Deep mutational scan, measured.
Amino acid sequence: MDETGKELVLALYDYQEKSPREVTMKKGDILTLLNSTNKDSWKVEVKITVNGKTYERQGFVPAAYVKKL
């Protein structure tokens, strides 16, 4: 869990989004878990840094590609 009590997951593999509802992640990324009720895909939040500014983006990733921490 992070400092706000949200559950975290670790990306086990790289994943490139295939639709606007998904998010891209790299192996080793730590993501905030938002919903894990679907056995196939979990909703997560990723933090992306562009030019020194951090943005948050929500979307789905394959459940088999992440592990709860």
Rank of each mutant, 00 (worst) to 15 (best):
M1L: 12
M1S: 12
M1P: 13
D2W: 14
D2I: 14
D2A: 14
D2G: 14
D2H: 14
D2K: 14
D2E: 13
E3T: 13
T4K: 12
T4Y: 13
G5I: 13
K6F: 11
K6I: 12
K6T: 12
K6M: 11
K6N: 10
K6R: 14
K6A: 11
E7L: 11
E7N: 11
E7Y: 12
E7I: 15
E7T: 13
E7H: 11
E7S: 11
L8S: 06
L8K: 11
L8R: 11
L8I: 08
V9S: 01
V9W: 04
V9D: 00
V9Y: 06
V9R: 01
L10P: 00
L10Y: 11
L10G: 01
L10T: 05
L10R: 09
A11Y: 04
A11R: 03
A11L: 05
L12R: 03
L12M: 08
L12G: 00
L12Q: 03
L12F: 03
L12E: 01
Y13P: 02
D14M: 05
D14I: 06
D14F: 06
D14R: 02
Y15C: 05
Y15K: 01
Y15R: 01
Y15M: 02
Q16K: 12
Q16W: 11
E17S: 15
E17F: 07
E17N: 06
K18L: 08
K18G: 08
S19K: 05
S19M: 06
S19V: 05
S19P: 04
P20T: 09
P20S: 10
P20L: 08
P20N: 09
R21W: 15
R21H: 14
R21L: 14
R21P: 04
R21I: 12
R21F: 14
E22H: 04
E22T: 05
E22K: 04
V23I: 14
V23Y: 03
V23H: 02
V23Q: 01
V23P: 02
T24N: 05
T24D: 03
T24I: 03
T24L: 03
T24G: 08
T24P: 07
M25I: 15
M25Y: 03
M25Q: 02
M25P: 01
K26Q: 08
K26V: 07
K27V: 07
K27H: 04
K27F: 04
K27R: 11
K27P: 02
K27W: 04
K27L: 04
G28M: 03
G28W: 06
G28C: 09
G28V: 02
D29T: 07
D29L: 05
D29C: 08
D29G: 03
I30S: 01
I30Y: 04
I30L: 07
L31T: 01
L31H: 02
L31A: 07
T32E: 06
T32D: 02
T32I: 15
T32K: 12
T32R: 14
L33T: 01
L33I: 02
L33C: 05
L34N: 02
L34E: 01
L34H: 02
L34I: 15
L34P: 00
L34A: 01
N35K: 05
N35P: 02
N35I: 07
S36L: 04
S36M: 09
S36W: 09
S36Y: 07
S36K: 07
T37H: 10
T37W: 08
T37I: 08
T37K: 10
N38Q: 09
N38I: 05
K39P: 15
K39M: 10
K39W: 08
D40K: 12
D40V: 12
D40F: 14
D40W: 15
D40G: 08
S41Y: 15
S41G: 05
S41M: 15
S41I: 14
W42I: 02
W42F: 05
W42R: 00
W42D: 00
K43R: 10
K43V: 13
K43N: 04
K43L: 15
V44M: 01
V44K: 00
V44N: 00
V44P: 00
V44G: 00
E45W: 06
V46T: 10
V46P: 00
V46R: 09
V46H: 07
V46L: 12
K47W: 09
K47A: 08
I48V: 13
I48N: 05
I48L: 09
I48C: 12
I48K: 07
T49M: 12
T49L: 11
T49G: 03
T49P: 03
T49I: 12
V50S: 08
V50D: 07
V50G: 04
V50Q: 09
V50M: 11
N51G: 11
N51V: 04
N51F: 07
G52F: 04
G52V: 02
G52R: 02
G52E: 05
G52I: 03
G52K: 03
K53F: 13
K53A: 10
K53E: 11
K53S: 10
T54H: 07
T54A: 07
T54M: 10
Y55W: 10
Y55R: 06
Y55S: 07
Y55K: 06
Y55E: 09
Y55N: 04
E56H: 15
R57A: 06
Q58I: 12
Q58L: 05
Q58G: 03
G59R: 00
G59F: 08
F60P: 00
F60L: 06
F60C: 15
F60K: 01
F60T: 04
V61Y: 01
V61I: 08
V61F: 02
P62D: 04
P62S: 04
P62C: 08
A63L: 02
A63D: 02
A64L: 09
A64K: 13
A64P: 06
A64I: 11
A64S: 13
A64D: 10
Y65F: 13
Y65N: 05
V66D: 02
V66Y: 01
V66M: 06
V66P: 01
V66H: 02
K67L: 11
K67A: 10
K67D: 05
K67E: 11
K67Q: 12
K68Q: 07
K68D: 02
K68I: 13
